[in-house]
Amino acid sequence: MSRTLIIAEHGGGRLNPATAKCVSCAADIGHPVDIAVFAETAADIAAEAAALTGVDKVLTIEDADFGQPLAAMIAPEAAAMAGDYSHVLGPSTTYGKDLMPRIAALLDVNQVSDIMQVTGSHRFQRPIYAGNAIVDVEAPEGAPVVATVRTASYAAAGNGGSAAVESRAAGAERPQHSRYLDLKSEGGDRPDLQTASRVVSGGRALGSADNFELVYRLADKLGAAVGASRAAVDAEYVANDLQVGQTGKIIAPDLYMAFGISGAIQHVTGIKDAGTIVAVNKDAEAPIFEIADIGLVGDLFQVIPELEAALDDG
């Protein structure tokens, strides 16, 4: 019964990439991996899941009630399936965070939240205190492990698989107390700073609110959200809600590009979990270079237009 079940996340008829990251985590646990797809129509999603490297079986559970991501609908069904598994994983997205604890409670276990590393079949590392401490957690043997996977800690599994797809009938009783109404994607053209996968940020070196246009233009070219250092906010180049850092937003985009930001500890606290940090600053001694994955010493007024041109070229 050493087997891992991953609850697939999907939307708009596509598999969410977070699921592929769970597969990578499950691979570290080492047991055979199945993926459960709860959907109204599961075929396309299941096909994507079946193509993920390292997946043994894809189980589809189709029902009109599963057309929308309602935890109260899915949890009883998932919990009923869990009897065949030692581990049940979901992504640490709002979907997984909503659903997985409900499954865990039905199985009478605590959940391991936000796995960042697997150190044994029942041993994991996870962050607490907003990532300011990492704990080793051991789940008890003899009970299912229900866990969410911190997506930023795992690369997506590849597409080299060809798992069998099996259909399962839904059997558990479903509640009538919850109804899905709608989903609105937020904001206008620019992504939300808090959740964007790319962020372009500017500091006081921009020199004026007008010059901040440069940052906006580059961000739009990259489909990125715009952020700012506190110094830029204090100088009133941009509004307070763009502030990244200790007293602003704590963010973890895949790509963070800092222009003319010195990298005070207060700012760095807000981006410490970012995937890749790029820093462009005139001052080669700026502390931001000590934590940047890619650094460029240069004048942002030159570098940004050059970057735009380079992006246009290729």
């Binding site: 006081r204 004026s208 010059n211």
Partner: peptide, 15 residues
């Protein structure tokens, strides 16, 4: 003391 396009100013980082 900050110099930018609006000239030389006293900036108070009260926070």
């Amino acid at each position: 003391m900050v110099e930018d396009q609006s000239g030389r100013n006293l900036q108070i980082n009260a926070a």
